[in-house]
Amino acid sequence: MVEFWVNVFLVSLLVIITFNIMRNKRLIAIVALSGAYSLTAAAIFVNMDAVDVAFTEAAVGSGISTILFLAALRYLPVEEAHETRYPIWSLALCVIVGVLLIIAAFALPEFGDPNAPAHVHVAPRYIAESYPLFHIPNVVTNVLASYRGFDTLGETVVVFTAGIGVILLLSGSTLSMRLKDADTKSEENSDNASGDIVKNSGDDT
C-alpha cells in the first residue's frame, strides 16, 4: 500500500517535471529538469525493486547525460527559439499517438502479475537454477553476463561504435578539420574549454 502511494507521488512528480520542461524556454533549465526527470524515474525503479536498472538510470540518465548536454549547450543560444505558429497537425498526431498508447497500456498485464508472458518463459528457470549452479546471488548479473552474454557483447560493441562515431565527428579527426587545424595551429589553441560549463551554470542561477 505504501509502495502504491509512493508510486503515485513519483509519477505525478514526473508529470509536473514534464510540463515544466514544456513551458520552460531556457535551455539550461530544461537540461536540469531532464536530469531531475531521470532521477525520479530511478526512484520509481527502486520502488519496483529493479535496483540495477535504477542504478544505471541514475548514473547514466541523470549524471553523465546532463553533463554531456551542458557541454553541448556552449554552442547553443541561451533560450529556445520562439515558436510563433502552432502546428495543428503535430498536435493532432501527438494526441492520436498518446490515446493509442493509453489504450494499449490497458492490454498490458498487471504489475507483478506472475502469469505475465515475461514471467513464464525463461525467467523461472534463471531464478531457480542460477544460484545453485553459479553461487552468485545477483540474478541480474547472471542473466546479463552469462545467460545473455551475446546480448551484452552486442551492447558493448554498440557503446564502442557510438564512441568512435562521436570521436570521428567532433574531435577534429576528419580531413577538412585536420587541414583547418594545421592552418590555425599557431593561433589560440588552448582556451578554457570545459571551464565554461561551470561558469555558465553559475551565471544563470
Partner: peptide
C-alpha cells in the same frame, strides 16, 4: 571520450 569531444569541440 564523449565528454572530451563535446567539451573540446571547436
Amino acid at each position: 571520450a564523449l565528454f572530451n569531444a563535446f567539451a573540446g569541440f571547436k
